[in-house]
């Protein structure tokens, strides 16, 4: 008998009888008057991300300010040109003319700019779902500095609302909560291991 058939047969013999009802009395909606954006900013700062809030017409200037001294910037295919208008360094766009390689992205002095799909206020989490302004997973992973633009309309209260917003859960998903960190030394959180050690977040009011 194949391992598959044997295991499934053993489970059929061993499993409990009957159906189990799942009570879902936890919160999936939150009061409309909560200052979600303020909460998100508070959580991000707590993780030691750098946070800026600005209006829609100030994104380019804020991007340029946060990237002062950064000579090269990688962007996924769908990052809008207007975010880049005030940045004076070199912009390399994934896929134009060719996909960026790991070596391209590992070059010193390179940062990456992406958008996000949705942000969770209570946990300070940015969800990337490989949408056009987020691109392939390695873009936000290999560079040491990740700059992420969040629109206030993308901010939800909790994890349930965030997962419900995803267009397609089978796309590669990455949940980012602060810069790379470890709790492995005496169980204290220390920032900076393998992922980007600097995370900047621009929250755009609209």
């Amino acid at each position: 008998m194949s391992a598959r058939d044997e295991i499934l047969g053993r489970i059929r013999a061993a499993r409990p009888e009957g159906r189990v009802a799942v009570p879902r009395e936890y919160r999936t909606v939150h009061a409309a008057d909560t200052d979600l954006v303020g909460l998100l900013v508070d959580r991000l700062v707590d993780y030691r991300a750098t946070v800026r809030r600005c209006g829609t017409d100030e994104v380019a200037a804020t991007v340029a300010e946060l990237l002062a001294g950064v000579p090269r910037l990688a962007v996924p295919p769908g990052v809008p040109e207007e975010w880049l208008a005030a940045y004076s360094g070199t912009v390399v766009r994934d896929g134009t003319p060719r996909p960026l390689t790991v070596a391209d992205l590992d070059a010193p002095g390179l940062a990456v700019l992406t958008g996000c799909a949705v942000a969770v206020a209570q946990t300070g989490t940015l969800l990337l779902d490989a949408g056009p302004d987020q691109g392939r997973r390695l873009l936000s992973l290999v560079p040491d500095h990740h700059l992420c633009v969040v629109h206030t309309g993308q901010v939800v209260a909790g994890v349930p609302q965030a997962l419900a917003r995803l267009a397609d859960p089978t796309r590669p998903l990455t949940l980012v909560s602060g810069p790379s960190a470890t709790s492995d030394i005496e169980l204290n959180r220390v920032e900076g291991v393998h992922g980007p050690r600097r995370l900047d977040v621009i929250v755009v009011d609209r």
Binding site: R43, T123, G124, P169, T170, P172, L173, T174, L175, S177
Partner: peptide, 10 residues
């Protein structure tokens, strides 16, 4: 509140 990274792939 949340671990730094969670990856999901299909």
């Amino acid at each position: 509140r949340m671990n730094p990274y969670t990856s999901l792939w299909t």
